[in-house]
Simulated assay, not measured.
Amino acid sequence: MDSPLSRTREGRPRRQRAATDRDIRHAARALLVDDGPEAVTLRAIARELGITAPALYRYYGSRDDLLEHLRADVVADLGDVLEQRIAGTEADGPARLFAICRGFRQWALTHTNEFTLVFASGATAATSSTAKLQQLSEPFGRLFLLAAGDVLLSDDVALPSDDGMPAELRDDLAGYRDVLLAVLAEAGTDVPADRLTVGTTYLMMQFWARLYGHVTLEVFGNYPIPIAHPDTLFEALLSDLAREIGLA
């Protein structure tokens, strides 16, 4: 039989009590931040809260179920961070887009375990980083897509030709383009179809892939050579991306 007393991580006794959803998520987030995604288990959370592990099943059907909710909490917080970052930014799309890119990198470097859970762990199709970029209800994806939509509406942007992409990707990109147009329209940003072409969709995919790939390499220390000035390297990446879409 379980003892009516359990111990916190600091070793202080604590009586067993009924957990709340807020308690569970708080304990899960603390484990994530301190020790990484693998440390977030129902048994560990129960130990933190001074309850039995089966009691957690009243709230979550499985560890995966809990992790999905934890991912959503982390992404919501990331959205809040980026909202605050662009709050004082000039209104034009390019300034906001690149402020979001810088904010995403800074958040990833200072929230490594949370970044790992959301963007670099075994996410399902519904919670992958690509899916999150498509979801208007998800703060990070909404901010990124709306800023990109404003950039596409700018006359300064050099739209690429559809001929500049592999023909084998055309069908996949056309489907993704339709999703993006719908998401942007739902948010009140009507981008004409001739501005968001299949070629432009390919460019957007490449933009995200390079940004995400660069940040991931930096977060996990996987640059192929030692970099004494990583900030300079990241700004050079943003400059390259800006030139590719015709921005100064």
Results as ranks from 00 to 15, higher is better:
residue 15 R to V: 14
residue 185 A to D: 15
residue 174 A to L: 08
residue 60 Y to N: 06
residue 39 A to V: 03
residue 70 L to A: 07
residue 35 D to V: 06
residue 70 L to Q: 07
residue 113 N to L: 04
residue 39 A to D: 01
residue 75 V to I: 15
residue 240 D to Q: 02
residue 107 W to C: 02
residue 104 F to I: 05
residue 169 L to N: 10
residue 205 M to T: 08
residue 90 E to Q: 13
residue 119 F to S: 01
residue 150 D to M: 14
residue 53 A to H: 06
residue 134 Q to A: 09
residue 144 F to E: 05
residue 78 L to E: 07
residue 144 F to R: 10
residue 225 I to A: 06
residue 197 T to V: 05
residue 227 I to Y: 10
residue 192 P to Y: 02
residue 175 G to P: 01
residue 243 R to E: 12
residue 86 I to D: 04
residue 235 E to N: 05
residue 84 Q to M: 04
residue 98 F to A: 05
residue 3 S to F: 14
residue 248 A to D: 10
residue 76 A to L: 00
residue 237 L to K: 04
residue 45 I to Q: 02
residue 61 G to C: 02
residue 83 E to D: 13
residue 203 L to E: 11
residue 233 L to E: 08
residue 220 F to T: 06
residue 36 G to R: 15
residue 79 G to K: 08
residue 62 S to N: 14
residue 97 L to S: 11
residue 150 D to T: 12
residue 236 A to T: 13
residue 242 A to L: 03
residue 245 I to Y: 00
residue 8 T to D: 14
residue 182 A to V: 03
residue 170 R to I: 12
residue 131 A to R: 14
residue 240 D to A: 11
residue 67 L to T: 04
residue 3 S to L: 09
residue 174 A to D: 13
residue 245 I to C: 13
residue 216 T to Q: 13
residue 62 S to A: 09
residue 245 I to R: 00
residue 158 A to D: 11
residue 131 A to D: 08
residue 240 D to V: 08
residue 8 T to P: 04
residue 189 T to W: 04
residue 129 S to G: 08
residue 148 A to H: 08
residue 244 E to D: 10
residue 248 A to T: 13
residue 103 G to C: 01
residue 234 F to P: 03
residue 104 F to C: 01
residue 240 D to I: 07
residue 95 A to D: 13
residue 222 N to L: 15
residue 98 F to S: 02
residue 57 Y to S: 02
residue 190 D to W: 11
residue 162 D to L: 03
residue 124 T to E: 04
residue 24 I to Y: 10
residue 130 T to R: 07
residue 68 E to R: 12
residue 150 D to H: 13
residue 103 G to R: 01
residue 65 D to C: 14
residue 135 Q to D: 12
residue 63 R to E: 07
residue 151 V to S: 00
residue 198 V to H: 11
residue 196 L to A: 09
residue 203 L to K: 06
residue 197 T to Y: 03
residue 4 P to E: 11
residue 165 M to S: 06
residue 100 I to W: 00
residue 120 A to L: 11
residue 51 I to A: 10
residue 57 Y to C: 01
residue 102 R to V: 05
residue 15 R to H: 15
residue 110 T to A: 15
residue 216 T to V: 03
residue 46 A to P: 09
residue 222 N to I: 03
residue 175 G to V: 00
residue 241 L to D: 11
residue 211 L to G: 04
residue 31 L to K: 03
residue 75 V to D: 12
residue 87 A to D: 07
residue 184 L to R: 00
residue 229 H to C: 12
residue 108 A to C: 03
residue 62 S to Q: 09
residue 112 T to L: 08
residue 122 G to Q: 08
residue 201 T to P: 01
residue 96 R to K: 15
residue 79 G to F: 09
residue 38 E to I: 01
residue 23 D to F: 09
residue 95 A to M: 08
residue 188 G to T: 04
residue 188 G to P: 15
residue 6 S to Q: 09
residue 101 C to N: 12
residue 3 S to T: 14
residue 137 S to Q: 10
residue 64 D to P: 02
residue 47 R to E: 06
residue 74 V to S: 07
residue 212 Y to H: 14
residue 40 V to Y: 02
residue 121 S to C: 10
residue 67 L to Y: 08
residue 61 G to P: 05
residue 156 D to R: 13
residue 54 P to K: 14
residue 117 L to C: 06
residue 68 E to H: 13
residue 248 A to W: 00
residue 134 Q to R: 04
residue 62 S to E: 13
residue 82 L to M: 01
residue 24 I to H: 11
residue 24 I to M: 14
residue 197 T to S: 15
residue 26 H to G: 10
residue 88 G to Y: 12
residue 167 A to T: 07
residue 117 L to R: 10
residue 13 P to M: 13
